[in-house]
Write a protein that binds this DNA or RNA. Sequence first.
DNA 1: GATGAATGAGGTTTCATTCAT
DNA 2: CATGAATGAAACCTCATTCAT
Lengths: 203, 203, 203, 203
Amino acid sequence: MEQAIPKRKKWIIEAAVAAFAQKGFHLTSMREIAKSAAVAIGTLYHYFDSKEEMLNDILRAEIDVLQRALAEITQSNRSAKEQIDAVLQLCFARLAKDKSLTKLIFCEKVIAHDKFRDNFRSLQDTIISHLQKIITRGIAKGEIARCNPSLVAALIMGAITVMVGKIVDTEESSEGINQHEVAQQLHNLLWQGLTTKLNPAFT
Amino acid sequence: MEQAIPKRKKWIIEAAVAAFAQKGFHLTSMREIAKSAAVAIGTLYHYFDSKEEMLNDILRAEIDVLQRALAEITQSNRSAKEQIDAVLQLCFARLAKDKSLTKLIFCEKVIAHDKFRDNFRSLQDTIISHLQKIITRGIAKGEIARCNPSLVAALIMGAITVMVGKIVDTEESSEGINQHEVAQQLHNLLWQGLTTKLNPAFT
Amino acid sequence: MEQAIPKRKKWIIEAAVAAFAQKGFHLTSMREIAKSAAVAIGTLYHYFDSKEEMLNDILRAEIDVLQRALAEITQSNRSAKEQIDAVLQLCFARLAKDKSLTKLIFCEKVIAHDKFRDNFRSLQDTIISHLQKIITRGIAKGEIARCNPSLVAALIMGAITVMVGKIVDTEESSEGINQHEVAQQLHNLLWQGLTTKLNPAFT
Amino acid sequence: MEQAIPKRKKWIIEAAVAAFAQKGFHLTSMREIAKSAAVAIGTLYHYFDSKEEMLNDILRAEIDVLQRALAEITQSNRSAKEQIDAVLQLCFARLAKDKSLTKLIFCEKVIAHDKFRDNFRSLQDTIISHLQKIITRGIAKGEIARCNPSLVAALIMGAITVMVGKIVDTEESSEGINQHEVAQQLHNLLWQGLTTKLNPAFT
DNA sequence: GATGAATGAGGTTTCATTCAT
DNA sequence: CATGAATGAAACCTCATTCAT
């Protein structure tokens, strides 16, 4: 059984994720996080070594989950199309679960900075490399049209990133972007371009 | 004849652009910029009101150029396909001209922050709205397959952003991403999905 | 029991009062105050929001005491002469208690500046308006010779201010101004001019 | 014939006097003075060695005039009463001529600071010492009631200072303090207290 | 004389982090 | 475990002053 996460650590993580997602890493102070989490500043340092490690720890936990899910998808026997669809679904499921945290994982630029641990690879790069692998194999099997896998992978990643940013930022406004529609459209768009099939009947 | 920009202001801009692009806005100090520009700190404040205004001023000058070019494209009589191609070419031409500055314009997140002037719209949003307009008209004219213009516009923008980030970050390494190839691939990818034409022989 | 003021806050107040009184607000730096109070600069900002608020807070606490004492005097049933005497005694008692702080309260000009909170009225104005009220009633009751209450009030205030300045500035020198004599002389001087006695034909 | 003062120097003096009187020495920058005088910053340093010397020079010129006038009054054969009246008239005449400059001369505290030249004595001290001399002789001649000359001199000075401050600060408001009335009232007040005579017929 | 771009020391203030309670 | 007062390095920015034009 996993050891339970102390309630204070939970509070801190929630407060930090919300603040980082809204104002960014550098414009969020430890004092703000402590206040918003209703704990003392010192308590932050019981659970995290530093401000940077705090972001690092929070992200890594989530990213590990995603990376494991990505690996599972890539290693499966499904077709390239199904695998890419699975990646899209994975991302949008993550978004549905927690918008702020998802924004952090996908968009926060600080995580790529030198100061962070070397063994930390941005999620963007990870997703791109998985997609690249899937596409490469898809081309080899004739499931996907010939293209530069690296570029197409980046293209897909870019689309996901922009979508996440847009959806999170318009959360409070009543613009009401429909996540399911977004996923569907992205799917259609990609597969009209990626499939070798002619598109006689466009839905 | 336009008034010449003082050499020191030029130095400062170059130093600031390089530093902001490499380390980000918050991790770059005015002292570093001054040192790297070989001027005194006070000189920075002779040409710019504050650190934020410095980024603001630098970006706005370039963004204005891009926005005017975008408007010209959108208002032309060309087909939707040609207009979208023109947008892509515009972005990649910008990139070819100055990688650091382009990264700043496309990727720096600070520019969207509240502290910045209200009348400042991020370039991403501008490009997206132009693309959206082009796509909407393209659909009406039957030049483009039916889709959600807002989403497709964001997708294209996402692709551009990721590409720019990737190309700039791999600049020093010898990976040597070929810009022309990137533009070409992106073009192909998009038009296989956007065109209503069947693609009988895709190589 | 009142909550105890932390010793460090006390140190800071003492150091600030001494420095402001000796060199004035603008020529005193936070660094100096911190050093002289034997605390870190950051500690100053733990107890005060800013340099200006520091002066503001220090002054307001003392001024509130004086204002309450002034109100009590003005509302009492005593004669106008006794009330004015009480005001003089109040001022000189304050001076005896703490010369530097008294100088600050009576003489520092910065407190009247726009940057300070609007609800802050200089002690000078407060004393003047109290004196004016006392004099006006004294005239009505025939206890005081006819005069312009506003001007006479200002005159008395001026005398007090100059005295305070002189006494504090000659503190270290051996000129040894006797405070009790000063108060007595000022009393005589005023009442030879303000009383209706002995002046049978004063219009 | 005195050499004519260059127009630019005049502009600078006017701008500086206005700014110093309104905002005080420390809160007025050389840039502001230059701008308000419509000259370049460098020009300020053609006419004055430094910001402090600028205030110094401006004040000294006016103070010299006042000191010479004071000396003339003190050395005259007139009665003590007439001499004190003359001092009051001198001050109020100065005020009528130029309110801002007068406020500076009488009220600006910086001029007493160490950084200023040693041979600079504040006008307050000068007037006080002149008054003290007049009062001492007046007592000896029986023209003035027995009192502590030093204190009474300071009292008179205090009254003048407060009056000047009040009049200048209420200049823009429509409160309309009448200078002539002020002078008259101050005269009356003092002489009812200083004279040994009962005041049968007060002129 | 007149200019104002350039300087850089020094100002106020912030904030991640520590540690005695 | 939890606290928050205390720290001090370093940030942004101001401004009196200089000097080449």
